[in-house]
Design a protein around this nucleic acid. Structure first.
Length: 331
DNA sequence: ACCTGTCAAGTCTGG
DNA sequence: CCAGACTTGACAGGT
């Protein structure tokens, strides 16, 4: 199997390359000239997109093919008091340039709208804001000219004291989404609420691929479900949407500490990942792994170094180009 | 150059 | 019912 690694949003190696520069609404409100303020927001967005392109070039140089964009590329993009503002036209060229680079180098990209996007919510206003936010992320993919393999990953959401009802509400509200949103979505198991098996059932119901987060599964799995048992069904959620055009994706991170087991550590441990590849996914031909660690891309490179050392010790794997490894199949 | 507080968002807990 | 915690990178203001 081929396993490609990626990281999230920013680099700790590339200096002054934030893709998430912003302005708060309270500061925007203080500006004397609203129009000038909007131009300033667009300027910040342009800077974020330019830095995103720099990050992609860094990824290209380091042979990294998997990357998650910052969700904050356009500051205040979905803020209710700026609903009359259309930032997209002014930024179309910058988005197109980013998208062209992604296509040219065959990269896999995604967004992760933050956890305020909740489709399980019982509140109509929250649901509408969530749809707006998803539409915003889809719009950015469209401006980049990327096909449906570029997708938005979210969580099922809150449980509101009744997980069954919240799950049903998610499904019902998901079915009200426009196709262009629904067809670019993946769902991830949560570290507090919806477990891997609960998320999987919902994925199957609405026809959405499931991103398995190994760390979340380790800290939120009260019924002790084995990943081995869930994996074949998870694979089918990917095949159903993408056929063989896109490998399944998992998330990997390590607990910050014993007192904060859900927090993300600076780096990732190779052990749990290796065990997953060996015991669960060994027959899966291709897999993408998103590394979620405080030290971002550095943790990815450190993991690759560790894997290279394991290879040198005779472990059955080889580190190849494309920030990836090849693991012989068990069959 | 560094430190502390603030900002966004929605959910959940404690009082 | 309301205040605060949670999370995260970045900004603002003070030293």
């Amino acid at each position: 199997m081929i396993v490609r690694f990626g990281y999230v949003a920013m680099s700790v190696q590339l200096e002054n390359a934030s893709p998430s520069r912003t302005m708060t609404m309270s500061n925007f409100s203080k500006l004397p000239d609203r129009e000038a303020g909007l131009r300033r927001l667009e300027q910040l967005a342009r800077e974020n997109l330019r830095n995103t392109l720099r990050l992609l070039k860094h990824n290209r140089y380091m042979d990294v093919r998997v990357y998650r964009f910052s969700s904050k590329l356009i500051p205040l993009a979905t803020h209710p008091s700026l609903s009359d503002w259309d930032p997209y036209a002014a930024l179309a060229e910058d988005f197109a340039e980013v998208g062209a680079f992604v296509r040219e180098h065959g990269m896999r990209v995604s967004f992760h709208p933050d956890h305020f996007t909740v489709l399980s919510t019982p509140r109509q206003d929250v649901f509408e804001k969530s749809v707006n936010d998803l539409r915003h992320h889809v719009k950015m993919f469209e401006l980049m000219g990327l096909d449906e393999r570029a997708a938005n990953n979210i969580h099922v959401g809150g449980t509101y004291g009744d997980k069954e009802a919240a799950g049903r509400r998610f499904v019902e509200q998901f079915q009200r989404l426009e196709d262009r949103i629904a067809r670019r979505m993946t769902l991830e198991n949560d570290d507090k609420t919806f477990t891997a098996s609960e998320t999987l059932v919902i994925c199957e119901r609405v026809g959405v691929p499931m991103v398995l987060d190994l760390h979340h599964h380790a800290v939120n799995n009260p019924s002790g479900d084995q990943a081995e048992r869930l994996w074949p069904r998870i694979l089918r959620t990917w095949e159903r949407r993408y056929g063989t055009a896109l490998p399944p994706k998992i998330h990997v991170s390590s607990p910050k500490s014993e007192s904060d087991p859900r927090g993300h550590a600076d780096y990732v441990e190779a052990g749990p990942l290796i065990r997953f590849l060996r015991d669960v996914a060994s027959d899966t031909p291709a897999l993408d792994v998103m590394i979620e660690a405080k030290r971002k891309d550095e943790s990815l490179f450190r993991l690759l170094d560790e894997l290279r050392a394991m290879e040198a010790e005779g472990a059955p794997l080889s580190v190849t180009g494309g920030a990836s490894i090849e693991v012989p199949s068990s069959v």
